[in-house]
Amino acid sequence: IVTDVRVPGNSSQILLPYLQQANIKYTVLISDLQKAIEKQSGLRLYRNRRSVAGYNYEVYHSLEEIQSWMYRLSKTHSDLVQMFSVGKSYEGRPLFVLKLGKRSRSYKRAVWIDCGIHAREWIGPAFCQWFVKEALQTYQTDPAMRRMLNQLYFYIMPVFNVDGYHFSWTNVSSFANVSENILDEGASFHPCDDTYCGPFPESEPEVKAVAHFLRKRRKQIKAYLSFHAYAQMLLYPYSYKYATIPNFSCVESAAYNAVNALQSAYGIRYRYGPASTTLYVSSGSSMDWAYKNGIPYAFAFELRDTGHFGFLLPETLIKPTCTETMLAVKNITMHLLKKCH
């Protein structure tokens, strides 16, 4: 069993000798957590915010920057990008989504992508932005991307938990969000716990709005991809119980090919499989909810790393993380185009 422990600086002088005496192996991952947090969330005053061309995809962006970026793209790439809101958050912020794809016919199958369900996992929103960038930049030159955008729509929500994400920038803290009504193991009824399930299913306006949007399009949306951190895993249902999904062989094949494609970039190996056996049993998974509501390919990515930086992944790792993840997502999407009817 491996676990991460956070201790006050003055307590480490007591803890480390105890671990040695008990013959418990340990590694100090982050010697000064406060400094790491301050470094990640420090204000970046010199970014070029004036144009899409000057937007830096290799740094983390605040909610305001991300929403401004979405708006600019919808204006400068109106042939491929539409911006709309599915509702409002608890604190009244709009829940923006980008619809990405060529408007060639009235009905097209679709892929839903969300990032930032958990506010402290900043690499998620970074990837959502990276995906849009790559799609727009390579549409004319990459036959695979051209086919993807011509034959599918991508609904992309860069920041699901907008209130929590904004709070994590301004107060150096974090939120969790729950979007599933299957509650058993891995969920807490205590409001201060990371795994708090909420008072009732879809109790939060963000969750209710997205759930309503997905349910209305359940016949159109063929894949649900949710991006999180950290663990370097590609997970699929079920998360809330030990059981095999009916279309296991198709989903397993897609996952296997996706992690191989990902590994081809930098040699990073992802584990893959049902979330309950690959990670742990947990209730409240949006992936499980999507699958239960008729979306046949539902995946949750746990991006870099495996614990050294954890939720404080440095900006220097945004590019390699997003580059390799892009290969996996393209692979899954091409699998849909070949197999899904």
Rank of each mutant, 00 (worst) to 15 (best):
M145D: 08
A135I: 13
M157T: 01
G124S: 15
V162K: 00
V162H: 00
R147H: 08
S174I: 07
L136W: 15
D142T: 02
W122L: 02
D163V: 00
I117M: 13
S174L: 11
G164M: 04
Q140R: 14
Y165W: 01
Y153D: 08
N171P: 01
A126P: 07
Y155H: 09
R147M: 10
F160G: 04
F127C: 12
E121C: 08
P158T: 01
P143C: 11
A126C: 12
A126Y: 10
L149E: 07
G116C: 07
W122E: 02
F160Y: 09
G164I: 01
G116L: 15
G164W: 05
W130D: 09
F127N: 10
I156P: 04
F154M: 00
P125E: 03
G116M: 10
Q140H: 12
H118K: 04
A135N: 13
K133M: 11
A119D: 01
E121H: 06
F154V: 00
Y153V: 08
D114T: 03
F167N: 10
A119R: 01
G124V: 10
S168T: 14
H118W: 08
W130T: 06
W130I: 04
I123N: 05
F154H: 00
M145G: 03
S174H: 08
Q137M: 14
H166K: 02
G124I: 14
V159C: 04
R147D: 04
E134S: 13
